[in-house]
Nucleic acid binder design. Structure first.
Lengths: 245, 245
DNA sequence: TATTGTTAATTTGTCTTACAAATATAACTT
DNA sequence: AAGTTATATTTGTAAGACAAATTAACAATA
């Protein structure tokens, strides 16, 4: 007799409640902006205590699936789950992946060259006027000399996202977001170097110009120039760090 | 006077605690398998009650950053955060993105053709013997006639992941995971069709053979054949659904 | 009539207290 | 040596109480 056994595992009540509510969101039973029953009612329906419901709701909140507000018109609501809402999950996952698995910048750069090359090709073909405007907005923000380092990073991410969006394929945009988010530590490094900022801004200006003119090959070669520049910058920073260390 | 104001926002104590603990994980203060102080101690350190700590910990658990166990050697531990651990976050995000934004199979298929074509090129160049073995294991699982639909889906995902891993670039693998996870609903559809299973298995066998022989172009054309087959299958299922509906 | 101020009701957020469940280890028994 | 039991510890769940935030309704005032 061949008896396959799996390890027994008791799942906590709060996780079971969270999983069921998540399934209701996934299968469309609960829609964006729907209001969930009060914590008291949920406790009665699931036959568990209110703190258990609260713990379940915190699980969902951590995944950005829901939000809560106090007051007579308050309650717990299902979030809109477009790419912006989901980007926090992506950001966390990507950042953790890169930092806790010692992913080198070279590995990220190689991946980036492959995927962003593809994005640039599609963006040159498909970019609408709105897409171009979004790139311009991000670039204008980056060009502001009084911008804080944090805002410079955010604008950098926004510029690359705008290009991903210009591919016209939402799934591809979404997948690219996790790559772009994984670059945050690098963007952080740039933001504090004013000379590096100038170089990046200049490259983004040229990229935008080439996308407007639908000149794919030149846009891609500027991209590669930027990726190599970042690698070099990072290597120099590492050397300086070792000399000081 | 030009007065820029941002909406005031009070962040709940449980979120503040969770954010601080997450930052400690991200900045390396807390490492994989580290044991956090007990809930009682955390409450004393953060000067909040134990239920507030528990709510914060549920936020982290939902992101797979920690796990808990009862008993004298139990406690709360930081998870290893390799791609497998992070794939749950990715899976949720991708599935939600696809289902709640009405992403069509065509959009997913177009994206998949572009990205998996790239993966196949790199995998044919870089696949090691271990990589090939992982593909074989996944395919062997899929070929088992007694396999449950759920396990067939899991093996399907595993096969595609093995190919992504064979590219030799961990960042690319990671990014591909979110695409592969977004295909889950489609894989679910296949798993209940025994004839479709045979077709998929045959295609995977041919793909594996071509990767072993480093024949990139043929592997890619089989991939495209599979993607088109899935689209056709999905369209037929939609037509049947409309006639019944 | 329009604006400002006050009050009441509602829901989530936090806290205190108590006990249960799971778990590993030490001690005891066979 | 193997099996059983008791113990201590930590997380999991529950009950009860009160605070904070918020909106709607109502009152007062210009």
């Amino acid at each position: 007799m061949n008896l396959d056994v799996a390890p027994l595992k008791k799942v906590s009540l709060s996780k079971q409640v969270a999983d069921q509510l998540q399934e209701a969101i996934l299968d469309g039973t609960l829609k964006a902006d729907d209001r969930l029953p009060t914590e008291e009612e949920l406790g009665q329906r699931f036959q568990v205590s209110r703190p258990t419901i609260r713990e379940a709701l915190k699980r969902l909140a951590a995944k950005n699936l829901i939000r809560s507000r106090r007051g007579p018109t308050g309650g717990t609501f299902v979030n809109h789950l477009d790419a912006n809402e989901l980007s926090d999950s992506l950001s966390t996952a990507s950042t953790l992946f890169v930092s806790m698995n010692d992913i080198s910048l070279e590995e990220v750069s190689t991946c980036r060259k492959e995927l962003e090359t593809l994005c640039f090709q599609l963006a040159c073909d498909h970019a609408s006027n709105d897409d171009i405007k979004n790139m311009e907005i991000a670039l204008n923000t980056q060009e502001d000399p009084s911008i804080s380092p944090e805002a410079f990073c955010a604008a950098d991410v926004q510029f690359h996202r705008a290009i991903a969006d210009a591919t016209g394929n939402r799934m591809l945009s979404f997948v690219m977001y996790s790559l772009i988010e994984g670059l945050q530590p690098v963007a952080n490094m740039i933001a504090y170097h004013y000379r590096a900022r100038e170089v990046i801004i200049n490259q983004h200006q040229r990229i935008l110009e080439n996308i407007k003119e639908r000149d794919t090959n030149t846009a891609i070669s500027v991209l590669h120039e930027q990726i190599d520049y970042l690698s070099q910058l990072h290597n120099e920073a590492q050397s300086n760090h070792q000399q000081k260390g």
